[in-house]
């Protein structure tokens, strides 16, 4: 099953609905997330982007179906979903503030570790963790508590935690928000480098960032999929302009 799936991992979502006491935050969404492309999920505030990811990662209960490698993710417990190789970041970066940057990454790397090895202290920095520290540029802060990090650095740490997890599917919820222009570019380039053998979904409000890096875009509105396609197709879609009324110029803007 492993060899034949390379290059063709996907999550197939059919009829996904999330009901908060009668309010349908996600309303019958069909969506296919494919390996090897940067899939952007956009839409106005409250469209249901975060809720969609929450449902796929076991944080909220959803009905319908979300198939990944012959398993339905809906109804699975969160830590089991992670063990399948599906990772996520959070819109508000959540790191272990009292632990050091290194400890944060080491815990994230633990998915692949045997339980019995937990009882020993870490002797050396694991290879993957060291690499990731370099990638996210936090080597200098490796031994500082994560609580002192700036907002953007916490987002980087979250990305790093995904990298050491070696997640095959990554959901990034507004990760580049709060990063400087340079940092956004670094993040975008990093995602482009790692996406060929992964399924990556990026939730983002920054249209310029989307235009530059998106291979495929899904626009959500009021819990439904409004439009799907390439950046060009989305920009040409009049419906998309309508929901982005105030920011219509921005979506279509061409430099």
């Amino acid at each position: 099953m492993t060899a034949s799936l390379i290059g063709q991992d996907y999550i197939e979502i059919r009829g996904l609905t999330v009901d908060f006491d009668g309010f349908k935050a996600i309303d019958g969404v069909d969506l296919t997330l494919m390996q090897g492309r940067l899939h952007f999920l956009i839409g106005p505030n409250g469209a249901g982007k975060t809720t969609l990811v929450d449902a796929l990662t076991g944080l909220v209960q959803g009905s319908g179906e979300a198939r990944f490698r012959n398993k339905n993710l809906l109804g699975m417990r969160a830590h089991r979903i992670v063990q399948l190789g599906i990772g996520r970041t959070f819109q508000t970066a959540t790191v272990f503030e009292q632990l050091t940057v290194l400890q944060n990454l080491d815990i994230a790397a633990g998915v692949h570790r045997k339980g019995s090895r937990l009882l020993f202290a870490r002797r050396a920095v694991p290879e993957r963790v060291a690499q990731t520290l370099e990638t996210i540029g936090l080597q200098a802060l490796a031994n500082r508590p994560a609580g002192i990090l700036a907002h953007g650095q916490k987002q980087w740490l979250e990305v790093g935690m995904l990298l050491v997890q070696d997640a095959q599917v990554m959901f990034l919820d507004e990760t580049v928000a709060g990063m400087s222009a340079d940092e956004r570019e670094e993040t975008g380039d990093l995602l482009e480098r790692i996406v060929p053998d992964r399924t990556i979904v990026v939730i983002e409000h920054d249209m310029e960032f989307m235009r530059r890096y998106a291979d495929f875009v899904t626009v959500m509105h009021a819990g439904k999929v409004l439009a799907e396609g390439t950046v060009a197709e989305i920009q040409a879609d009049p419906q998309v302009h309508e929901v982005y009324l105030g920011t219509a110029a921005e979506v279509g803007a061409d430099e």
């Binding site: 990662t57 830590h79 790191v95 400890q103 815990i107 997890q165």
Partner: peptide, 18 residues
């Protein structure tokens, strides 16, 4: 370390596969 992480952010630990 994991125990402290769990104490401080139990939900986050869940999303790291524990």
């Amino acid at each position: 370390e994991l125990l402290i992480a769990t104490r401080d952010a139990e939900e986050r630990v869940r999303f790291l596969g524990y």
